[in-house]
Nucleic acid binder design. Structure first.
Lengths: 192, 192, 192, 192
DNA sequence: AATGAATGAGCTTTCATTCAT
DNA sequence: CATGAATGAAAGCTCATTCAT
């Protein structure tokens, strides 16, 4: 009377999770707007209708997938950033967190402005995750003449610029991995 | 036998120019991918089919429009940058050039990665325009420890970040106008 | 060995009855074709699949619900009509019977032709119920020149016309209640 | 410069008319709600998309078709009714008008309550067409005790009842044709 | 007996592109 | 050269029905 429903719910949650994870892969590789609902269903090995059983609309589906993984990215960002005391350490932590989800994160950089407001808000939250730590380590820093906000946006802008143009900067392989030290070194030395 | 065709061609060129200019306005306000070919035809006062008389496909059309205005932006960037001797002057010149085409330029920042490779290449050329001057004024600068390329990308990334999130940074009005001094000051003081 | 199955069957019958009664309410308010099977399951507090355990198809389900309540309506019509000796009394009895199921009956008027043949046949049986009494009281009537069948259809047609256009004739409240005397009086005086 | 557009428009109007006429046939035989947009396109020999070129939505399409033919029916009703001086003549005229569009009219009787408000309103206008003449000839009539409105609704209700149940009353062939004299005679003699 | 997740056929609507005039 | 009607491939979403548990 109590574990049957649980088993069912479990199965349902598994399917939902499967869809979210499948979508993550597909969105990572072909983007959000170039992916049809049926693509994901097919890749997940479920029927087209099943996707709509778990998510009411395509927009809602994308929002849930983005929300799910942005939470993970934000969490991971925190984890990796926590122990960083220097700016350099923090920047590396930030890039390490992104690296774990690089393709997906890059897709968000590319498409977030074309998606729903909810997705954009969610993506901005990810940036807040690092923002807090940024402020923390920055306080110890001399160059107080420059607005921390602008400094933060400069870092974010820099990283997003590399990700957005990853195909140019690092035609194959990870842009972040390729430019990790160059970018962190440069940014740190600017503030030195 | 020689000026009749010319008259025709002239008319044709006029129509083409009309389409390009109309598209510029519409793309600036609604974006590339949210605009239907018929929207532009209607706004230009020509028939839907006429657009395809001048441009084979939607993709090609967008590419031509982007190419046309990116050339203008690049040119204008050169004009305004030429006389700049200091970094600050240059950055201001750059922003001034962008300001003249801000809505369109912003749309490129938002969507270029969703468009054809040709569009992306064209957009990158615009960035080269300022890049040259950047190198020039940077040579006089002390902070040689930092890669000029990274420095340049930092500036571009910063500006694009503000444009991309213009609706957040400056819900109404021009982001560039709003943050012009803050951004240029910050960037310059970093290199001081 | 004999009462266990009975208990089960009892439970099953209860569920079936619950579904039929729930469907009656929903069909009465939203109509047959605008109601999803899942709507009824949800309203009855049973699972979606349960409906199909008791009824093979949607069509069959509707047919059973209609059959069930049409039987009741026919029965009630008989009960109320039996004691009527005059035409006027009979018409009032008829309307009183309909009034008790007005919303549902109206839905049948509206949709019966869109439903299965079985539903239509069932609905016609309801009309037979009053038809018998109609003939009875009509025999005493003078205007024998007119076919009783046509006369009967005239009455049914009149009532159905008012029910069908109830939203126009009585935007709120019962059409039958509103027009009861007007319709019976008119019909009776025609035959006087 | 003036007749080319006209030729074009003519062709377009022809296609639209073709669609409306084709829809008339299909709606007449299989009803409104059982007909897919693509059915009509196919029957008209045009592409599926063409239907949407001429009508924005399915609902709008049905509304236009209904409007078109209801206008014709109303007009024809007027024409045939105008010269009628007696009630009998009028009723016959009314039935003659309906007969010309019987299948379509019957479909409206069956489905109008399931269609848009616009369709319903349009259908009611058709009934107004005969209503006017009804009042006219009724004035000469004695039985003033009965409300003309109820009398009119009785006639309409009677006819609609026969049409609605045409498959029962006249399994093959026209109900109206079959019952024309029976109905008109009965109705007239009631008022005698 | 009951459940409810999964299925998949079905249908509307959109829009870049074509082509006869 | 210009027109704009016609095309038809997509794609999202719905819901009756099935079936493993």
């Amino acid at each position: 009377m109590n574990n049957k429903p649980t088993a069912r719910q479990l199965k349902k949650e598994q399917t939902k999770a499967l869809l979210i994870n499948t979508a993550f892969d597909i969105f990572s590789s072909q983007g959000f707007l170039n992916t049809r609902m049926s693509d994901i269903a097919k890749a997940a090995g479920v029927s087209h209708g099943t996707v709509f059983l778990h998510f009411n609309t395509q927009e809602e589906f994308i929002a849930e997938v983005v929300n799910h993984f942005c939470s993970k990215i934000a969490l991971r960002t925190h984890e990796l950033s926590e122990s960083s005391s220097s700016l350099k350490e923090l920047l590396i932590a930030h890039l390490d967190a992104i690296t774990e989800y690089e393709a997906f994160y890059t897709r968000l950089v590319i498409e977030s402005r074309m998606l729903s407001q909810e997705v954009r808000d969610t993506f901005i939250i990810v940036q807040s995750a690092i923002s807090l730590h940024f402020s923390r380590v920055l306080e110890k820093n001399r160059k107080t003449s420059i607005s921390p906000a602008v400094l933060f946006n400069m870092w974010i802008g820099l990283i997003h610029h590399y990700l957005l143009n990853g195909d140019v900067f690092a035609p194959e392989g990870s842009v972040i991995a390729t430019y990790k030290s160059a970018l962190t070194d440069a940014f740190v030395s600017l503030l030195a």
